[in-house]
Amino acid sequence: MRDDDENLKDANHSSESPGVSRRDFLKISGISVAVPLVAGPKMVMAAGQQVPVYGPGKVPMEFAINGKNHKADLEPRVTLLDALRDQFELTGAKRVCDRAECGACTVLMDNKPVYACSVLAIEAQHRPITTVESLIEGGNLHPVQRAFVENDASQCGFCTPGFVVSCKAFLDSHPHPTPEDIRRGLSGNLCRCGTYEGIRKAIAQVAQKGA
């Protein structure tokens, strides 16, 4: 955050744009009571271009989550994970490390697995987001989920939704993984209870049967 501000400030100076820099604006608004609840973007010059600056304060956002349209007014600093969990009550993705280290928050964005804690909600707008909640079809568990159940790949279960989404994405891109592929492909998720044995078996089972 701080680095961005620094850059922005320099950019403002070099282009000698008039008015309030974002930094000053932040300073004022931090203590001001008069900030409108929902602010539209403000245009500033950055690197010789007019760029919109959203916030501070809430801005209207729109998302495409699990095939449905969702709207919310959120501050630009809110992460995709917090938006999913606190605004849309999609609590399958968990907040654990909140900084791209554990994978508990994994969701699909543009069909690729991402750490939702490390994507800003504002940047995830209009991009298809798939969460663990949508993997059930017609009341039936996804084959990956079934394999997790059969192979006892969850204990406390807090890491499980993230693992399920990662495994699904992994198997979509590696339908016939080698054990080495599995080890590498799923090293972005962590489990404290130690369910890796079950997870490994679950993946092997799906890879054999085909998802």
Binding site: T91, V132, E133, G157
Partner: peptide
């Protein structure tokens, strides 16, 4: 297990 793998299991954090 089914509620856990489907993200339906509710934890205090949820």
């Amino acid at each position: 297990a089914p509620v856990k793998v489907s993200g339906q299991a509710k934890y205090t954090y949820d």
